[in-house]
Design a protein around this nucleic acid. Structure first.
Length: 489
RNA sequence: GCGCGUAUUGUCUAGUGGAAGGACGGCUGACUUUCUAUCAGCAGGCCAGAGUUCGAUUCUCUGUACGCGUACCA
């Protein structure tokens, strides 16, 4: 049997370094076993999915050099590879479950569910669907459907017994069925949830090994149960530990740069990033850690992976990157690569006339554009602060802006302006008064190239890093402040 | 709260029932006009407690910490 693995990113937000890590492990495992690696876009969340994000995912994975055998762009024999284009398939399968009595219609309103859960919490019970709609008979269901009441479809779950979860890297573990919720499989918008789509697709796409993050361990019983309901053989499961921040919390944008494209824009080399991520599964105890993808493949064994959540250590990544730059690049190649990075990574021409109009002689240009190409810029407290803006409010402005960048998807010039204005309005700050401080945070100077265009050029990830740096300079929020400010943002 | 998972230096890790090894980072020195790089060296560790044992970082139990889950998000 051919080994087939997959990466199933959901196109919500910036492609994440964690996705690269899981993708790499799937890629390496399939290659090691002469198998195939599939890319599937899991866009079942209509509200949050975007085309922009999907394009960014393909771009990032391609940049890393993780080529897939089948995917939404190149097709394959098991398509389509975008879940939003497979709705008929899911409908077919959900009615199968309905027929067999493994699933049921649920007409409970979100309000009722919310009340039910808070009551359960008050009684120190586990929150779990109470099975209210399980009592509905066929006639009730039919009547409700005719009334066009909104509904979801939930899976039935055994009342007692335990589910055993086998994992390639761990001892089998057990979870009692009593603890497993009657998961929604089909949402009221007619889209499947991850659980249904994932199982159906993995089966139909003949995925043999499901290698994914350990955040899925707890819902694995639901997946196992679905395989049983359908009468399918379940794949091998392998749950990988999640990447961590330096403080051991789950890797997050708030604390660390996590966008794959951020690393590209900062001048990391894809081979260095891949090498670095692969080190987590290599367990090379001695000898050279700098290894090409081919070399990595030679010694790759999923079993070597350490189960403790590894901290994403950017210092070591930088060291590896510098090794690649020194060892693998001639002076000529280095200059060429540098030029490509600086001028072709994004279209500097969008700023050309702005730069031009501020240039007396060419020598003016480098200091003027320096901030566009730097990872860090120097900012001082006195430059950031302004008489017109209260310090605490300015800190709050930076804080909510950082937080809110996570939620906006597109990053257009006009969108950026609107975004900043909204945040200012939220704090009842005069936007004009605020501008100088933002200039300093982003460019390092009170006067520079146009702000929104500059922010657009450096991108959302770097913008966030600059704002974080500015916030740290005038004082990170205390725990109390964080709590209060989080409510606003 | 409940469930699941994990635990070797600051970080990534190797390894073992009998003096814990490598890499990044740090520090010192050599080289270099300086800074890198390079070379040489130094410091730093088995989460805690109990049990089994002649002997436990390794086996068992308990605890602690951290993470994940507890959604019509994935």
């Amino acid at each position: 049997m051919t080994v087939r693995t997959r990466i199933g990113p959901s196109p919500t937000g910036d492609p994440h370094i964690g996705t690269a890590y899981i993708a790499l492990m799937n890629y390496l495992y399939s290659k090691k076993n002469n198998g195939q690696f599939i890319l599937r876009i899991e866009d079942t969340d209509q509200a949050r999915s975007s085309q922009h994000s999907e394009a960014a995912i393909l771009e990032s994975l391609r940049w890393l050099g993780l080529e897939w055998n089948e995917g939404p762009d190149c097709g394959g024999n098991h398509g389509p590879y975008r879940q939003s284009e497979r709705l008929d398939i899911y409908r077919e399968h959900i009615s199968l479950l309905l027929e067999k009595g493994h699933a049921f219609h649920c007409f409970c309103t979100p309000e009722r569910l919310e009340n039910m859960r808070s009551e359960q919490r008050n009684n120190k019970q586990n929150t779990k669907y109470d099975g209210c709609c399980l009592a509905l008979d066929e006639k009730d269901v039919k009547r409700n459907l005719e009334k066009k009441l909104p509904y979801v479809i939930r899976m039935k779950v055994p009342v007692d017994g335990v589910c055993q979860i086998k994992d390639m890297l761990r001892d089998p573990s057990e979870i009692s069925w009593a603890l497993v919720d009657m998961q929604v499989l089909f949402k009221s918008d007619g889209y499947p949830t991850y659980h249904l789509a994932n199982v159906v697709d993995d089966h139909l796409m003949e995925i043999t090994h499901v290698i994914r993050g350990e955040e899925w361990i707890n819902s694995t019983p639901k997946h196992i149960l679905l395989y049983q309901y359908f009468g399918w053989q379940q794949p091998e499961f392998c749950h990988l530990p999640l990447l961590r921040n330096p403080d051991k919390s789950k890797l997050s944008k708030r604390k660390n740069p996590t966008g794959i494209l951020y690393f590209r824009d900062m001048g990391y080399l894809p081979e260095a990033l891949v090498n670095f991520l692969a080190l987590f599964a290599l367990s090379i105890s001695e000898g050279e850690e700098k290894r090409s993808l081919e070399l990595l493949l030679e010694d790759f064994d999923l079993k070597n992976i350490s189960l403790g959540g590894p901290v994403f250590n950017i210092e070591k990544l930088k060291w590896l990157n510098s090794r690649y730059i020194r060892d693998d690049y001639s002076a000529d190649k280095f200059i060429t690569a540098l030029q490509e990075w600086a001028l072709a990574r994004k279209d500097i021409s969008e700023l050309a006339t702005e730069i031009q109009s501020r240039t007396e002689v060419f020598a003016d240009v480098i200091p003027l554009v320096g901030f566009l190409f730097s990872a860090q810029i120097e900012v001082t407290e006195s430059n950031l602060l302004s008489k017109k803006i209260d310090r605490s409010l300015l800190r709050q402005f930076f804080y909510i802006t950082i937080t809110r960048t996570e939620k906006i998807d597109s990053w257009t010039i006009s969108g950026i302006e609107e975004f900043l204005r909204k945040n200012a309005a939220l704090l009842e700050l005069n936007f004009r008064d605020l501008i100088p401080s933002i200039y300093v945070a982003i460019t390092g100077n009170k006067q520079s190239l146009p702000l929104f265009r500059s922010m657009h050029f450096i991108g959302k990830n770097l913008t966030r890093e600059r704002l974080k740096n500015a916030l740290a300079t005038i004082g990170n929020p205390t725990k109390k402040e964080k709590k209060a400010w989080d409510k606003l943002s």
